[in-house]
Nucleic acid binder design. Structure first.
Lengths: 199, 199
DNA sequence: TACTTTTGTAAGCAAATACTCACACCAATG
DNA sequence: CATTGGTGTGAGTATTTGCTTACAAAAGTA
């Protein structure tokens, strides 16, 4: 096998890692299989990552950078709160479908190994989303479109159930998810909660 | 070790199984540890269960019988739809807290092993709940308390996010969940969606 | 009592796992 | 050119895993 820089190899390893999760499930996720998939020796993998857990942590960082950052941009844009919340939800659903259950499977890995570091990282990703939702709702209340008597935390919690449920459906239905207009429909329900006139 | 009937041993094994999940996490869930916990030899465990997976399946059956059946009784009672939906939700949250993340951890096990049988059983438990929720909502629409223009499936989906999110909080926060009035508060939000006057 | 059945055990198996190591190669640098 | 340092490899390690098996002993039954 031709030599490559650590940077390139790390990228390949992370990609193969997610590929295996998607196609064969977590149980096939051994360093043996990983090396086979890439066509690299097992020893080489440990040249570019100190441990298997390090690979997972690197993927978490990617999720943080790619996904959470894109949500942050939406949440902080100058559009109306309704628009922002809707976009946030749709972006989340799209991401989950495009990255077929990866977050949930990593979640599964985290609870399987009862790993504190992994759990902390997951909690961070989870809470980051919740905070962005809360922010948008607060904005909507501040400008008077949404009901000020609402408990924002509760709605954020209810909101978080949506992506999580999408994840579960994805896993249990083997990656299938029929989501035409799904996020719009959920948004309609959320607005029934948020809108002022609905006492 | 004194001899005991298979019935008693199976019960002990299932209990120890859940104990280990709760106290040490899934990674410690080996037949070796299981036998140590009970004080029985490892060979004995395989005398009472054909395989490790059989233990998990037996626990699923227990959940089905104890938990889902109790939900079914609530859903089919003669109380008002509001009351039934509220009780259903509260019962679910209570069960999840009392059985600290067990369903989710079994879920983790199912997706970890990519096991079709386990996934099917989980899907069944998941869908059973969804159906009961749908039934109650349909009843509420039929008697005129709730808005007939609602897409029942969507609300059932939104509802399912609540217990699932509770599970996640339980796992990520190490079994802590501050749920005073939690289910009532969620119920308040759901009613804002369901009630007729909220166009 | 004599038998059969059920339950218990210790030892051990084959397979898989994450990870290491001694060594080979290659490219860049002095 | 010689040196150095990063990259690749195959064989090997120790450990863990789910599960089996040969046999002992207790419990049930005649």
């Amino acid at each position: 096998m031709k030599k490559q820089s650590t940077e390139i190899r790390q990228k390949q390893i992370k990609e193969a890692f997610l590929d295996i999760i998607h196609s064969d499930g977590l149980k096939s996720l051994s360093t043996r299989n990983l090396s086979k998939k890439i066509g690299l020796s097992e020893g080489s993998i440990f040249r570019h990552f100190a441990s298997k857990q390090d690979i997972i942590l690197a993927i978490f960082s990617d999720v943080d950078r790619d996904f959470i950052d894109s949500l942050r941009i939406i949440a902080n844009s100058s559009e109306s709160p309704e628009k922002r919340l809707s976009k946030l939800l749709c972006r989340t659903v799209t991401y989950l479908v495009d990255n077929k259950g990866v977050t949930m499977l990593l979640f599964s890995e985290a609870s399987h190994n009862n790993d504190t570091e992994l759990k902390t990282r997951l909690l961070h990703i989870f809470n980051s989303q919740k905070k962005l939702v809360s922010k948008i709702i607060h904005d909507g209340i501040a400008i008077g479109t949404w009901d000020e008597s609402l408990h924002v935390d509760n709605i954020a919690m209810l909101y978080m159930g949506i992506p999580v449920t999408v994840n579960i459906e994805l896993i249990l239905n083997g990656g299938q998810f029929h989501s035409q207009n799904f996020c719009q429909q959920m948004m309609t329900l959320l607005e029934r909660i948020l809108n002022k006139e609905n006492a």
